[in-house]
Simulated scan of single mutants.
Amino acid sequence: MKLIRKITFPFVPIYYAVTSLRNKLYDLDIKKSVSYDFPLICVGNLSVGGTGKTPMVEYLINLLKHDYKLATLSRGYKRKTKGFQLANETSSANTLGDEPLQFYSKFKNDILVAVDSDRNNGIKTLRLLENKPEVILLDDAFQHRKVKAGFNILLTAYGNIYTEDFVLPTGNLREPKIGAKRAHVIVVTKCPMDLSENDKTSIIKKLNIKPYQHVFFSFINYAEIVFSLERSVKLNQLKDFTLVTGIANANTLVEFLKEKDLKFDHLNFNDHHDFSETDIKELETKQLIITTEKDFMRLKHYQSLKNKLFYLPIAIGLNNEPKFNKLIKDFCKEA
């Protein structure tokens, strides 16, 4: 893969020019962005996957769900349906995508969960509902310039911040790093728990933030319990298991489990992997399977895995959490 990326380096200027021109047309209002008169919060990144958008959206849901009628709107990556879909009891990963299904499974009594590749259509359709949302969280919409969110949260992963990356196809950036100027808040995700103040200062310097921007650092909190559809088991009671991941970067999870001195083998698939019949047959041979919450959404309907499939929940913690929360709540009040 590294060799392929080096070979494709001559194409970087072309990709850079095309994405820069597109953004410039939006900046100059030649291509139109639609603004709305109610709070729209966008969570996204500059890079391709692996920055922790899903736990950030869940953090915002927990922060706002008691004060506002809330909805999430996602593209619904790899779903088998088209157009606008509103989650309900019959929804699956095929109709919604794995991440929206995860939102619905956890928060269906508190929020609306919708998908639409046309974000403007999705927003308008949600607002036509009788129980219309007062705040909409846009999942993975930082590059979707047809909508102008009132508040942009940009995520970048510790150890791979966007200022040290290249645009596709050699690097992982979907657009040039100057696009970060659209963010109101930048969150450096997946940080070590013991990240020093000197390290934070060094990262902030590299990010070269604008006067109006705020930087926060987040870390992953893994649960000490895994869950199936019917029961839960403490992590320290697990003996020998297979870890199954279909996420952009499983390194943090693998390191966490190793630190627990747990014995496991690892089946590592690509992000949003569409599990085939062959994959399922292989999983059926395993005694115990631990997976991520996102992967669980794609696997839980297989009856043959029901008694052996568990997921490990995660949440994020933030430094200076009160300041972050205040920024979000103040925006929602004033928008």
Rank of each mutant, 00 (worst) to 15 (best):
A180N: 05
K148V: 01
P313C: 13
T19Y: 06
K148Q: 14
H272G: 02
T156C: 02
D98Q: 07
N268K: 15
T90W: 00
F216N: 06
Y36K: 02
G317L: 01
S91D: 08
V48F: 12
K65N: 09
E175L: 02
L3N: 08
V244L: 08
N131H: 11
R182A: 05
L96K: 00
D274Y: 09
I111N: 04
V115T: 13
L283V: 04
A87L: 04
Y16Q: 06
V187P: 00
D194A: 14
Q213M: 11
G159F: 13
V12Q: 03
E293F: 09
F216K: 03
H144N: 11
G52H: 06
D29M: 01
V185Q: 06
I247N: 01
K333Y: 06
A335G: 03
I111M: 11
Y302G: 09
L154F: 10
L46G: 04
K281V: 05
Y302A: 06
L168G: 02
S218E: 07
F151W: 02
A157S: 14
I123Y: 07
K258H: 13
I314D: 01
L112F: 12
P39N: 07
H184K: 10
Q237F: 04
K294E: 09
K263C: 13
K200M: 15
A223P: 00
K78F: 06
M297V: 04
K177D: 03
K260R: 13
A250T: 09
M193T: 12
N307A: 10
K78R: 15
K181S: 14
Y158P: 07
K69W: 00
S91W: 04
A335Y: 02
V215C: 15
G159Q: 09
P313M: 11
H66S: 15
T95I: 07
H144K: 05
D29T: 08
N320Y: 09
P10L: 12
V115A: 09
K210F: 13
K177P: 00
R79H: 10
K2R: 14
K32A: 06
V57C: 08
N249M: 11
L235Q: 05
K108D: 08
S202C: 02
E282A: 08
A315G: 10
V226N: 04
Y212V: 03
L262G: 07
K234A: 14
Y311R: 08
K333E: 12
